[in-house]
Write a protein that binds this DNA or RNA. Structure first.
Length: 694
DNA sequence: ATACTGAGCGCG
DNA sequence: AAAGCGCGCTCAGTAT
């Protein structure tokens, strides 16, 4: 097996073990224990624990490695419900869900070794087996390699949805057998994880005990290692004058990430209610639209379109119509570069070849692209993701984004279409119960505010203190225009669009004001992403020389901003890390790379990390404060449900909406125990759906 | 059959 | 030669 670790004996206990009481007492005395569950699958809504394992270090220094039957849960009830206890997991939220599904929710602190590991080794995988192999030199086989494969076809309902289909025999009749219980899913289950588990417990119980105990033991060993490494990992604030509280990543982890795990668990657990009827109502129309578009494409092409995204596109536009590609793809593993047929190319074709078939085809493809993805991602797959009360429980991943942001998956609720592109009003499908309101709160210009705070640029700070629109303010300061004129220009533009003012109201001066605002907006945006003159010129629709000129003008007005970005890159060159306000760090070794494009990318990341990362922890702190404001939860019935980077979604009973909104505003605008020097502003709305609350 | 990758595109 | 940050999902194509 290649084990490079001293393994304590695996112990096994169940409800009938004579010594179970002794174990309970011993666990009760521990300050922290590692815990893991063996379940019948990976779905956080439907699956349950059947075995669980514990690991800790006894007073005599002996490591313990236990597997327990789920029937022993009740003996530990008082420990599970102890709010002060420390529980150590790998992938904490998953096991916390299993424990609650098994009717024994864990109330104590959720300490996630994956999250610890992500702070130290952001580029490495954070799974238990990977971490154990790399850091402990310890390998043990996967569950399925040990006990038999869980064959494809088993419904995981959080995994590969493509597999969720009824199994059909050669005559087209559904095959008798077990099907997933999930609503409208009905995929065929060949060998459930539960059956594999049952087989293992019958045929090879000792192996099962050994296997399960390893998971908790590995977690425990890694926990100690990561604790030590976090404590030895120096860090500091991006802004030490205002944030002197952090010396090591250990501080950062326990102050911020540990409480945050609990918040995310609550969000996942709460989920978001989906208006199934609404989706079912619009689905047939969308399918009809897609089929019609496909039919028209086939007519133009001359034969039926089997795969809309297939290679026929290249053949058609490039070979048949003779249009020169505007861009080639990267080539990938094979190195074969192909013409890029993306939205940009299609838009170009649609506009440049008006009246020709190629233009019509491009228009059809653009139209199809706009709806197909939305349909498959959010409409087709949604029924199989809903629980018995029509709630979808997305995952909110704490250990993925290098900057400290969250990511969302299964489904990804952070890229649900919005604005103009939300043509089916998908956001209206995310709703709350009758008698409740959806409370949608988002930060206004968070990253620009944090840039002003971090750079301490007086001009920019002044704009926020005056409560000006940041882009209008920047335009006024950078291009020496009166703020009121820019505000007026913006208003005139709006009126003309509505038809309330004639075109002639758009005087050259109005245009100048609007262009000034658009330019500083692009520059501010571009700065954050480390854009160079060329990309900015493209965005601002001007020559590179003009772009350089405008950037220089901007920087001349805001020298502290230039200094901030220069120093951000310089700091990474000096010490290898970029920092956030609260002391999260990101390693960027490529900052010294010889190849320009690798080094430049690291420089862009170095510029972006302090701002994006600090924005992430601003929202993170607000969420922690809101969650830990127990009145909000218990007295006013607020339930947090989702975060979309600078937006926090939740629900509450209608009677408390106003008070909840004000309380949330307070926390969002004052997320830190210290004043960062720039006011933060939150826009808060409420309605009966996500879409309505904007 | 199943797994992986690149391209493309949605969001902040 | 490569020049816009951070994510996740779907599809098509290819590798195993």
């Amino acid at each position: 097996m290649g084990w490079n670790i001293q393994l304590p004996d695996a112990e096994y206990y169940d409800l009938y073990s004579a010594t179970l009481d002794g174990i309970v007492r011993e666990v009760q005395d521990q300050k922290a224990v590692a815990i893991d569950t063996e379940t019948d699958g990976l779905n956080i809504v439907e699956c349950n624990p059947y075995y669980w394992s514990l690991s800790w270090t006894s007073e005599n220094g002996r490591d313990r490695r236990l597997t327990l039957n789920a029937n022993a849960f009740p003996a530990f009830k008082h420990i599970f419900s102890d709010y002060e206890r420390n529980w150590v997991f790998v992938n904490a939220k998953f096991d916390a869900h299993m424990m609650e599904n098994g009717k024994h929710p864990i109330k104590g602190k959720l300490i996630d070794v994956s999250v610890m590991h992500a702070l130290l080794y952001e580029e490495e995988p954070h799974g238990l087996k990977d971490m154990a192999r790399v850091h402990l030199g310890w390998k043990w086989t996967d569950f399925s390699d040990t006990f038999g494969k869980i064959r494809k076809g088993y419904c995981m309902c959080g995994g590969t949805y493509a597999a969720h289909k009824p199994k059909i025999d050669s005559k087209g009749n559904p095959i008798e057998g077990k099907y997933c219980k999930s609503t409208d899913c009905h995929c065929y289950m060949e060998a459930t994880a539960l059956e594999v588990l049952r087989r293992a417990e019958k045929d090879n119980h000792n192996l099962l005990v050994d296997y399960a105990a390893n998971d908790a033991y590995g977690t425990w060993k890694l926990f100690h290692l990561m604790n030590k490494e976090l404590a030895e990992a120096p860090t500091s604030s991006l802004y030490p004058d205002r944030w002197p509280y952090i010396n090591t990543l250990y501080d950062y982890f326990y102050k911020t990430e540990v409480p945050f795990t609990r918040v995310l668990y609550a969000c996942e657990r709460n989920g978001i209610k989906v208006d199934k009827g609404y989706l079912q109502g619009i689905a047939p129309n969308i399918v009809k639209d897609m089929l019609e578009l496909r039919k028209q494409m086939g007519e133009l092409y001359g034969k039926p379109i089997i795969k809309v995204g297939g290679q026929w596109q290249t053949e058609y536009f490039i070979n048949k119509c003779g249009i020169r590609p505007t861009k080639m793809t990267k080539g990938g593993a094979s190195g074969i570069k192909k013409p890029s047929i993306d939205a940009k190319f299609l838009t170009y074709v649609a506009e440049s070849f008006r009246g020709e078939d190629s233009s019509k085809m491009a228009t059809l493809l653009l139209e199809h692209g706009a709806i197909a993805k939305q349909y498959s991602t959010y409409i087709q797959s949604m029924p199989g993701r809903l629980d018995g009360k029509d709630y979808v429980h997305m995952k909110l991943n704490q250990d993925v984004a290098r900057t400290g942001r969250l990511s969302s998956s299964d489904p990804n609720m952070q890229n649900v279409t919005t604005g103009e592109k939300d043509r089916f009003h998908l956001r209206n499908a995310f709703i709350c119960e009758k008698g409740e309101d959806m409370v949608v709160a988002d930060y206004s210009q968070l990253e620009m505010r944090l840039l002003a705070a971090a750079s301490q640029e007086p001009g920019m700070m002044e704009i926020f203190h005056r409560n000006w629109d940041i882009h209008m303010g920047n335009a006024a300061f950078v291009f020496n225009l009166p703020y009121d004129d820019i505000a007026a220009a913006k208003d005139i533009e709006k009126q003309v669009k509505k038809g309330k003012l004639p075109e002639s109201a758009m005087t050259p001066y109005v245009w100048q004001c609007l262009k000034a605002r658009a330019d500083v907006k692009n520059i501010g945006f571009g700065l954050n992403y480390g854009m160079k003159e060329r990309a900015l010129a493209a965005r601002m629709d001007c020559s590179v020389e003009e772009a350089v000129d405008k950037i220089n003008q901007y920087m001349a007005r805001y020298p502290a901003v230039r200094a901030f970005f220069d120093e951000a890159v310089e700091e990474v060159r000096d010490c290898g890390y970029a920092f956030t306000l609260m002391g999260r760090r990101r390693s960027l070794p490529d900052i010294l790379a010889h190849k320009d494009y690798i080094r430049f990318r690291a420089e862009r990341q170095a510029s972006n990390m302090p701002i994006q990362g600090t924005a992430a922890e601003t929202c993170k702190m607000a969420m922690i404060n809101i969650y830990e404001d127990t009145e909000l939860r218990t007295k006013y019935g607020y339930k947090m449900r989702l975060q979309v980077h600078d937006e926090i979604l939740g629900t509450c009973p209608k009677e408390y909406t106003d008070i909840v909104k004000e309380r949330i505003r307070e926390w969002m605008e004052h997320p830190f125990p210290t004043d960062i020097g720039v006011p933060l502003l939150a826009d808060i709305g409420s309605a009966s759906s996500w879409g309505g609350a904007k």
